[in-house]
Amino acid sequence: MTIKVIRGNPTPEELAAALAVVRARAAALAAVPPGIPRPASAWSDPGRVAQQRVPAPSPTAWSRTYWPA
């Protein structure tokens, strides 16, 4: 694994702290047994995108699926 500093000039202590966080996260993920599913990310939750309920099926429902009320 390679870490590259794009901007700024971190001190050796700041770089060591960031690397410790990354390594701790990687170790935590590696410690999960293969049979246990990992929790799904909130980014993949469809409820995050759908702010309103989908209109009930009706002859005019197609026109209400995109435009907000």
Rank of each mutant, 00 (worst) to 15 (best):
M1L: 13
M1S: 13
T2L: 12
I3V: 14
I3Y: 15
I3N: 13
V5D: 10
V5C: 11
I6W: 10
T11D: 12
P12T: 03
E13S: 02
E14F: 01
L15V: 01
A17I: 06
L19E: 15
A20D: 14
V21D: 15
R23P: 09
A24G: 14
A24V: 08
R25A: 15
A27D: 15
A28G: 14
A30K: 14
A30F: 07
A31D: 13
V32R: 06
P33Q: 04
P34A: 11
P34F: 04
G35K: 14
G35D: 12
G35A: 15
I36M: 08
I36H: 01
P37M: 04
P37F: 00
P37W: 00
P39G: 01
P39Y: 00
A40M: 08
W43N: 06
W43E: 08
S44D: 09
S44N: 11
S44P: 01
S44F: 09
D45H: 10
D45L: 03
P46V: 05
P46A: 03
R48C: 04
R48F: 10
A50H: 13
A50T: 12
Q51I: 07
Q51S: 07
Q51R: 11
Q52T: 10
V54M: 13
V54N: 09
P55E: 08
P59I: 00
T60W: 02
T60H: 01
T60I: 00
T60E: 00
A61C: 00
A61R: 01
W62H: 05
W62R: 03
S63G: 00
R64G: 01
T65V: 09
Y66I: 05
Y66A: 04
W67R: 03
P68L: 04
P68C: 02
P68S: 05
A69E: 12
